[in-house]
Design a protein around this nucleic acid. Structure first.
Length: 412
RNA sequence: GCGGGUGUAGCUCAGUUGGUUAGAGCGCGGGUUUGUGGUACCUGAGGUCGCCGGUUCGAAGCCGGUCACUCGCCCCA
């Protein structure tokens, strides 16, 4: 180690920033709990297969953004790049397929070896929910509604747009895929290099290319909505209907796609244009194929994940770091007498700090700096009268009181 | 992984066409004040100018490399 620093794309969270994160997390976990989603926690690393199998060997996350390593038993492990696979794995392990549906919420660090940017780190936190065992469109609506409510509670909904789309079932999707490949192939000479590459590996992804030329071509591309079979089509209509019932605004974005094979039907994203190219705040969809890929019983699922750092950047909140009471003695000898007083204040739920050092002037300066509301002062005068001096630091007024009277004043 | 921008004190930033001991404001320490803070005044500490190399008599400033952050691409939360 040449210098004392964190590794690239991995940051310390000092109290002020952490508090922002915790507001996001607390809000998300509380609202999830109200929607009957129970918190689950899975390991931050797993056998690499848990992630590589579902994500597919060709996905960027697996090929170039992974943290795969071998441990001392020569097991191939991977720091988790996303939450869903681990949650579904845990669900299958615990045999919860016997008791459906299951609703889970989680939050924690994820790891991707990406080029860092604002709102895009190599270690970052996601908060997510998963609803397992319901294939009904109602589950999709519920999940979107929960996400919407979460963003509403954070008071950032006015800066956010909800886009939804459907990928249909596998029948519809493969039909569409063929049509799309034919269409795109006829424009082969005009497509960007990336899109040509995608055309081979994952043609649906060409649809959300940001290249201007590509977009012109994509604009007139066949629309997946025209290739849905009647079940898939009705399903999507039901979801839109549900969102209308909830008065949730959305736009249908026919080019919103998911690259991975286990995704089907609903895909949605809550995005903002306030964070540059890191605008996706909360995104999810239906993943009916996932549990089977992991080797478990075929179980439908739908869920989303939100980026905690990105949401924290959006949330306006004041850093609250206010001490209720400071305690100070006339000299250091009085510090011992302050200990039991502090203990009592803390038991009453008050945030307290004893200022141990410095002369009186210094102690008050410290009290001022940490933005304390009240001071309890103890010296010879006070001891002689078996009282404490109680000072209101905002008004500067002080009074001789006994401790219970002072506590009453602070807590009122 | 690709392309652009930035990097000077804890923070925000000055620093002329390369020229002695690199500055300001805020913040921090000490004092005016041995039981009274916020204000004011006085005073002090703190920099291998991101790092390494090159050009030059001489580099914070020029050149190359590297690291980090940042913007776009890619990907995604």
């Amino acid at each position: 180690m040449e210098k004392l620093r964190t590794v690239r794309g991995v940051h310390d969270l000092l109290p002020q920033e952490l508090q922002q994160h915790n507001i996001v997390i607390k809000t998300g976990m509380e609202i999830s709990e109200k929607y009957s989603y129970s918190q689950i926690e899975t390991p931050i690393f797993e056998f690499a297969e848990v992630f590589t199998k579902p994500l597919g060997k060709s996905s960027d996350i697996v090929t170039k953004e992974n943290y795969i390593f071998k441990d001392r038993s020569n097991d191939e492990l991977m720091l988790r790049p996303e939450g869903t696979s681990g949650v579904v794995r845990a669900f299958l392990n615990a045999g919860l397929v016997q008791n459906l549906p299951q609703r889970f919420s989680y939050y924690g660090p994820m790891f991707r070896y990406e080029r860092p940017q604002k709102g895009r780190l190599r270690q970052f936190k996601q908060l997510g929910i998963e609803c397992l065992g319901l294939s009904s469109a109602m589950a999709d609506i519920e999940v979107i509604s929960l996400g919407h409510e979460f963003l509403d509670k954070l008071k950032i909904l006015d800066k956010i747009e909800l886009k939804i789309n459907t990928l249909g079932d596998s029948e519809s999707r493969s039909k569409y895929r063929n049509v799309l490949i034919n269409y795109l192939t006829s424009y082969q000479s005009k497509l960007s290099r990336e899109s040509l590459n995608r055309l081979m590996i994952n043609p649906l992804r060409v649809l959300d290319s940001k290249n201007e030329e590509d977009q012109k071509i994509v604009e007139h591309a066949p629309n997946i909505l025209d290739y849905l079979n009647s079940d898939s089509k009705r399903r999507f209509e039901n979801i839109c209907k549900g969102l209308d019932y909830l008065n949730i605004n959305y736009t249908i974005d026919k080019n919103l796609v998911r690259g991975l094979d286990y995704y089907c039907h609903t895909a949605f994203e809550f995005t903002t244009n306030e964070l540059g190219s890191q605008g996706t705040l909360l995104a999810g969809g239906r993943y009916d194929g996932l549990s089977k890929i992991l080797g478990g019983t075929d179980t439908p699922g739908v869920g989303w994940a939100a980026g905690v750092e990105r949401l924290a950047l959006m949330v306006q909140s004041e850093f609250v770091n206010k001490t209720d009471v400071v305690l100070m003695g006339q000299s250091e000898n009085f510090n011992y007498l302050l200990l039991p007083i502090m203990k009592k204040l803390v038991q009453k739920g008050l945030r307290s700090e004893i200022i141990y050092t410095g002369n009186f002037s210094k102690k008050l300066k410290r009290a001022n700096k940490i933005n304390a509301s009240y001071a309890i002062i103890l010296g010879e005068e006070e001891i002689n009268q078996n009282m404490i001096k109680f000072k209101d630091l905002s008004s500067g007024k002080e009074k001789l009181l006994n401790l219970d009277q002072a506590i009453k004043k602070i807590t009122k």
